[in-house]
Simulated assay, not measured.
Amino acid sequence: MSAPNKHALLMEITALGFAVYDVQLYLDTHPCDVNALAYFHEKNKLYNQAMREYASLYGALTIDTMMSSCSDRWNWINEPWPWQEGGC
C-alpha cells in the first residue's frame, strides 16, 4: 500500500483541525448537545490519527507528535517550514 500524498494528508489535517476547533466553540455554548459531542469525538480521533500518520511519514508538525527517541528529538525543526520551498 502506498503512502498518502503529503499535500493531501496535510489538507485532511487542516480540514479536521478546523472541524474540531469549530465544534469546540459550539460546545462552549451548547455543552449538552450529545450529537455535537459525538461529532467532536469522531473528528478529534480522525485528526489525531492523521497527525500521527503524517509524523510517521513526513515528520512531526507539532512537538506532541514527535517520536520519543532522544537522538533525533529536535530534528523536526530542521525540516522545511510550510512557507519554505519543499515545505508542507
Rank of each mutant, 00 (worst) to 15 (best):
L10D: 07
L10I: 04
D22P: 01
A19M: 10
L10F: 11
Y21Q: 09
L37Q: 14
L27A: 05
A3G: 09
N44G: 07
E12S: 02
D33E: 12
T14I: 09
L9R: 07
F18A: 11
D28L: 08
L25Y: 00
A3M: 07
F40W: 12
S2F: 15
T14F: 05
F40Q: 10
L46D: 13
K43D: 13
N44W: 08
A36H: 08
L16F: 08
H7R: 01
K6A: 02
H7I: 04
L9A: 02
Y21A: 13
D22K: 14
L16N: 01
H7Y: 03
D28P: 01
N44Q: 13
Y39Q: 12
N5V: 02
L25C: 00
K6C: 01
K43V: 07
P4N: 02
H41M: 14
F18R: 13
Y39G: 11
D33S: 07
L27F: 03
H7V: 05
N44T: 13
L25D: 03
I13Q: 01
P4G: 01
K6V: 01
C32K: 15
A3L: 11
E42W: 11
P4K: 06
H41Q: 15
D33I: 06
K6H: 02
H7F: 00
A8Q: 05
A19Q: 15
E12C: 02
V23C: 08
L25W: 04
A3H: 10
K45T: 14
F40N: 06
N35H: 15
S2P: 15
K6S: 01
D33Y: 12
K45C: 12
L37I: 12
H7K: 09
V23I: 15
E42V: 12
Y21L: 08
L46I: 09
L16K: 06
P4M: 03
V20D: 02
A38S: 15
Q24C: 11
G17K: 02
A38F: 08
T29R: 05
F18N: 11
A38D: 14
P4H: 09
V34C: 13
K43L: 08
Y26T: 11
G17D: 03
K43H: 15
Y26H: 11
V34S: 15
K43Q: 15
T14P: 00
M11E: 04
P4L: 03
H7S: 05
A36P: 09
A3N: 12
A36F: 10
E42P: 10
E42N: 14
K45L: 13
L27Y: 06
L16C: 04
A15D: 10
Y26R: 09
N44A: 13
E12M: 04
T29L: 07
V23D: 06
L16H: 04
F40E: 07
H30R: 14
N44E: 12
F40L: 14
L25T: 05
Y21S: 13
P31G: 07
L46F: 13
K43I: 09
